[in-house]
Design a binder for these strands. Structure first.
Length: 668
RNA sequence: GGGCGAGUAGCUCAAUUGGAUAGAGCAACGGCCUUCUAAGCCGUAGGUUACAGGUUCGAUCCCUGUCUCGCCUACCA
């Protein structure tokens, strides 16, 4: 509705410009006036025309406003056009008309793009190395990724969610080395340990397998750097021996690695499930290796000339690729080229990643095997396999992809895109989005609270990077536990009459709301300096604030013994009056702009946009709630309008929270 | 050395991608519960948008230079 109105406006402006001054304007910028009293749309078009027409912007605006007034009469949904400021044209819409339309069809989301359904999108997120417990940094990734998925689906896209599992990397090898050589455990002992951990259940923390691995991983990293030089050399050799055994597969060591990484992976899935995050498919590096994806990709890369064999300089004997935007002088050796195949014939990580991405776009000519791995209440999560089940869904072959990976990976990501371009897959390269974001770090204070040693130098910094290798960070489940404990005590105090199970449920929902909103409210380019004080805050710009607002709105209907649907229906019958009250109109207008906010969020790939939109609506509702007492309103028409306003606010808040993966609790 | 990101109120962050008076939340101070829930609302105070130039009707945003911070930049994986 709002969108159609805006389109009609821009179209008419174009027509008027054409007929009056014979000017063709490709795009007509439409802005929002700084204040509601100025109207719903602001057109700065007169500024742009000032030079061309040799007239003052204000004059042009006045002239244009008059023309628009004639072209768009009140019957078309517009109320007024006025020249304002230095040359803006402020446009008012028929508020009541728009409100009635919103009351009728505003519940439908609508697609951002008419072709949305045709484009199959693959979003990859989480991708935690399966060798230790998940930490806050992984939470940012998973929450951003999951929210992106929800938003794309809301816009009508068909989305597959992947979680890439690097189960043959050096990180897994390190934990294997830890169990086998540092702790001297046999395979049977490790299996026994995992069985005991498993018996503890998902609720356990101490003794949980991924927690044990967390500590072990840190110890092994330490162990590599200890001892005599000879010992260090041997340990390093052991490390790579183990790594290569894992890569080859089919050995005792490889089987140990597989059971460890699978056990940790299951725990990661449970952790993410606590946050309402689910996956469709788990492609693993082991299959990329064993199904020889690279061999195919290597051929394709050689054929297309993306890779060339370097004969000179430091990379002599390697297959290398020119980096994006590299300045290469003809005849000179490109020392800065990216090595894809080492001189010993082994492929680098970027090489494997290129092969994997060719698969993602359906350009490899090979596929994974698939088997069932994890059951969610409503669907199955599949995992890659060399053999696989006979019947299975098909993943890959996507029209567009989003890789949710932190900004530290932007260089390798750019290399993959470069390779796609070099191979002539322009469209794939254009539809490859590195959804990058800055890391989560800890404030020095937070690190010290957790008992880590913080150097004098680090204490002076704004934040300290977390490090799985050092065992330095806040574990995801610990944080969720802490949040739930905090919300639980608050719920106990506020809702003493409710049953235990219900209070626990509410506490969990609020904890998730706090965490998810916290991770979303920062724009992607901002480093989150994590601190428990901020993360455990439930006031102001927080998830619980928005949830509380929705609960308040819903309580009105409980007390009034009616429903939001009935309230909206009642308004459709009674009319919206003149809708002159800006406090009410702010809410309706916010609702009208939901689609625009959704489109902007996708356009900029910035979930903070939708988070902010929700928060602002909550502020507007609380303002309304404070100024107008609905249930004691005596004028029936007025009461109907107030109730319908609460209904639309509740509807919008619920939708927006849902997009962020946040529930509205029963009570707060 | 090169690449990317950041520098905005005491603190943590926004700013519709170049628009009107740079906005929120914390923290501080002062008010508001006999009311649909105070996880709330209202108010006060807080700014040379790192610095210097430039582009133009108009710059936090674009360009040039300088400074500060972070990350990336190995034939490791």
């Amino acid at each position: 509705m709002y969108r159609e109105v805006q389109q009609q406006l821009t179209k008419t402006v174009q027509q008027v410009l054409k007929s009056t001054w014979d000017i063709d304007l490709e795009t007509v910028p439409v802005e929002q006036p700084p204040d509601l009293s100025m109207g719903e749309f602001a057109l700065p078009v007169a500024f742009e025309l000032a030079r061309k027409l040799r007239k003052a912007p204000r004059m042009i605006a006045a002239e244009l406003a008059a023309k628009l007034r004639q072209a768009l009469t009140p019957e078309t949904g517009f109320a007024s056009f006025e020249a304002a400021g230095a040359g803006y044209i402020n446009v008012r819409v028929d508020r009541a008309g728009m409100a009635l339309a919103l009351a009728a069809d505003g519940a439908t989301t609508g697609t951002v793009d008419g072709k949305a359904a045709d484009l199959r999108i693959l979003v990859e997120h989480t991708s935690i190395n399966p060798n230790k417990a998940a930490h806050v940094g992984h939470l940012r990734n998973a929450i951003l990724g999951d929210t992106l998925v929800r938003i794309l689906r809301a816009a009508g896209y068909s989305v597959d969610v992947q979680n890439y599992i690097d189960n043959t990397g050096v990180q897994v090898a390190d934990v294997v080395v830890g169990f086998l050589h540092v702790e001297g455990k046999s395979r049977q002992e490790i299996d026994g340990l995992m069985a005991r951990c498993d018996a503890l259940g998902a609720e356990a923390r101490e003794g949980r397998f991924d927690y044990l691995c967390w500590d072990l991983y840190a110890r092994v990293s330490q162990w590599y750097s200890e001892g005599t030089e000879e010992q260090q050399r041997q340990r390093k050799a052991l490390r790579y021996e183990t790594l290569h055994a894992i890569e080859r597969g089919e050995s005792e060591v490889a089987r140990v690695a597989d059971s460890i990484s699978t056990a940790v992976l299951r725990l990661h899935l449970l952790t993410m499930q606590r946050l309402g995050i689910e996956y469709d498919f788990l492609p693993r590096e082991s299959e990329i290796l064993h199904l020889k994806f690279w061999d195919r990709a290597f051929d394709l890369l050689k054929q297309s000339g993306v890779l060339y064999h370097e004969s000179q300089g430091k990379n002599a004997g390697c297959w290398v690729m020119t980096r994006p935007d590299a300045k290469v002088t003809e005849g000179e050796t490109d020392e800065d080229a990216k090595v894809i195949v080492r001189s010993n014939g082994t492929v680098t990580y970027v090489g494997k990643d290129i092969a994997y991405h060719l698969w993602k776009f359906g350009l490899l000519g090979a596929d994974f095997g698939y088997r069932k791995f994890f059951e969610y209440p409503r669907h199955t999560c599949w995992i890659s396999s060399t053999e696989g089940d006979v019947e299975h869904p098909h993943f890959g072959g996507a029209g567009a992809i989003y890789n949710v990976i932190d900004s530290r990976q932007s260089d390798p990501q750019a290399n993959v895109v470069q390779a796609l371009r070099g191979m002539g897959h322009q469209q794939a390269a254009n539809r490859y989005t590195h959804f990058s974001y800055e890391m989560v770090a800890l404030t020095p204070r937070c690190a010290m609270e957790l008992g880590y040693h913080v150097s004098e130098e680090d204490q002076g910094r704004a934040y300290i990077e977390v490090s799985g290798r050092k065992g330095f960070g806040v574990k995801a489940d610990d944080l969720l536990d802490k949040l739930t404990a905090a919300t639980r005590s608050e719920v106990d105090a506020r809702q003493p009459e409710r049953a235990e199970a219900e209070r626990q449920m509410i506490a969990k929902q609020i904890a998730i709301g706090a965490l998810r909103y916290f991770m979303l409210k920062f724009t992607r380019g901002s480093v989150i300096a994590f601190d428990f004080k901020d993360a455990l805050s439930f006031e102001g710009e927080t998830g619980p604030y928005v949830q509380y607002t929705a609960v308040r709105a819903r309580n009105i209907f409980r007390k009034a013994e009616t429903t939001p649907e009935q309230a909206l229906e009642a308004m459709r019958e009674a009319g919206a009056g003149a809708m002159e009250d800006d406090v009410l109109w702010a809410i309706w207008l916010r609702a009208a702009r939901r689609e625009q906010a959704l489109a902007a969020t996708i356009q900029s790939a910035e979930p903070a946009t939708i988070a902010r939109h929700g928060f602002q609506l909550a502020q507007e509702f609380n303002n309304f709630y404070h100024k107008h007492h609905i249930l004691t309103e005596e004028d029936p028409a007025r009461r109907t309008l107030l109730l319908a306003t609460a209904a639309v606010a509740l509807r919008e808040l619920t939708v927006l929270l849902h997009w962020m993966g946040i529930d509205v609790p029963e009570a707060m």
